[in-house]
Amino acid sequence: MKKNKLSTKQMIAWISVNYGVFLLAFFTLGLMDTHRMAVIANFVLDVALCGVSLILNIALFSPRHRISMAGKIGLLFVTLCFAAFTCFAFLMPENGIPPVLFQ
């Protein structure tokens, strides 16, 4: 079976697309805070996007990819930042932006 390996540029493009979708989904679905399903869908989508981005970030650490260490670690930290933001917004009841998931 032929292995489909993404190039460095493609991986960075996919990670950037994930970030864009994350921001778009977070603020679009965040406006529909009265629907509980929208909040749950927002949370699941955000977690999935963070997971996929994290996998791509870890794959980017392979020596095959010619990108500076600062770039690799920077992108990893951006993903962690989004993950922490998801945790902060949905799972910590004292924040309430958007409405907390498990009330």
Partner: peptide, 23 residues
Amino acid sequence: FLGIFSYVVIAAIVSLLIHVAGL
């Protein structure tokens, strides 16, 4: 939690700036 969040945000910004400066 805010401390960890601040660390991650600052590290991300600094890393991306270092990367851009390298480029």
